[in-house]
Design a protein around this nucleic acid. Structure first.
Lengths: 243, 243
DNA sequence: CGTCAAATTGACAAGGCTCAAGTGCCGTGG
DNA sequence: CCACGGCACTTGAGCCTTGTCAATTTGACG
């Protein structure tokens, strides 16, 4: 990585440069974006459906998720996010938010004007390409998410969600796949998997009793990774590395 | 539209130009792409998971879907496609397919080298922008799909799927929202909504008995559109017009 | 007219939901 | 330092939506 001074863009740049070779100049131009840092409490809504968005939001610390609400108030989480994730690339090209973005823990984000990002992309197409790839990886994860919710039973769904989250945390340097922190409640897990929190609890118990995972509070240890992969039907190819 | 001669790119261009103003030159450069037409029988697989893809595939006539398979063989359809849809933009930036693309009816497609498309995008950023927007709209539809499968009951799911498909057909000029052709089997509908074909049948019967829809063979008439929207919890904002 | 895939219907089983009660943990205030 | 309150977690009992299995009908097509 270029300049060694720690900054809000470090995690993002680490991710973008995994698959896209960005040169010093490109990296520097990203680091030079004017930004506005902001803190959010756990459970705060950063972006809500219908909102007009003119700033781009990058998660610097903490955890967040995107979700949509059904008419009966049911919440469906469609993705989890960790430090380094851009929370709303889609607003580069769409004015209006079509879903909500909410923090899971206390979180630090930086906003920068979408206008500046658009200009940057025009001047440096490689950056656009890196971001586009990020969007495509996002869509790939969404497709797997549909499969998970639509075609797997409760135990598999939860196991799969845990595997994916473990992989995401590891890629972001937030833990090893064998041992990481789950920031979300069992209610959140239910909203992500299309189950109730009660049933999530029962399935976590089953996974624990079977010795596939071990839990202490919200710390998760995947005790038997090969069996976990099998229980979860987890084939990480869909997580195109840059995701 | 520029040249009035009917061609394989007409439907795509109609879609892309809804929100992106492409000039004559840009439109011409798309029309000039070297292409290889091909026909597929109903149920044929066009792209399968793991395959290395070097050509871009545009659906010219007929219907198709994308799907993923679970370890137990269960199939989850993640999107339906009509004439004018590009079936694999993601391979612009990813080599390997992470899902399957299959025809639903007999279909006509054209392939053109991904290399040419990449060059075109570099030369004419507006085209890249239009395609990027298309990807983002795709992701938005996927998020709604997750919500549909994860948080709505069987009747709503099916009603929602029908509304979305009606909107897609109308946008592609393939019918009015009140009256259109369903190309897929009830098994396909089940695979798209995370239900069994048996239960899809039951729910279609309920919707019919309630007078919300009317069916003759695979023709669907939405008899009571306001009620249908309500039953389906259908708010079409997520279908960003260019989709 | 025969064949085959899709649609339809019924009976029964089961996975997951609802409702309800109780437990544990942690931050706050006295 | 302890008591309290709130939220998340845990567990049980019974119900309901959806799945499974199986038989039958319909429709398209050769």
């Amino acid at each position: 990585m270029a300049s060694s001074r720690a900054g809000p863009f470090d995690a993002l740049l680490r991710k973008l440069t995994v698959l896209n070779k960005l040169n010093e100049e490109e990296i520097h131009s990203i680091r030079s974006l004017p930004l506005r840092p902001q803190h959010f409490k756990a459970g705060a809504t950063i972006i809500s459906t219908g909102q007009l968005v003119s700033e781009c939001c990058l998660l610097v610390e903490g955890y967040a998720c995107r979700h949509k609400l059904a008419s009966d108030g049911g919440r469906q989480i469609v993705s989890f996010h960790v430090a380094g994730d851009i929370l709303d690339v889609q607003h580069l090209l769409f004015e209006k938010a079509d879903h909500n973005v909410q923090t899971i823990t206390d979180a630090a984000v930086v906003f920068f004007p979408m206008r500046d990002l658009r200009r940057l992309i025009e001047e440096r197409p490689e950056i656009g390409k890196a971001l586009w790839r990020d969007c495509l990886a996002d869509a790939s994860v969404l497709r797997e998410w549909v499969l998970n919710v639509g075609r797997r039973d409760a135990k598999m769904r939860i196991a799969h969600m845990l595997c994916e989250f473990a992989a995401k945390c590891e890629a972001a340097g937030l833990g090893s796949p064998a041992h990481f922190m789950l920031p979300m409640t069992q209610e959140d897990i239910g909203d992500a998997t299309g189950l109730t929190s009660v049933h999530v609890n029962r399935m976590l118990r089953v996974l624990t009793d079977e010795g596939v995972i071990a839990r202490t509070g919200r710390e998760i240890r995947i005790a038997d990774w090969p069996r976990m992969k099998e229980v979860a039907d987890f084939q990480p190819d869909y997580l195109h590395p840059a995701a």
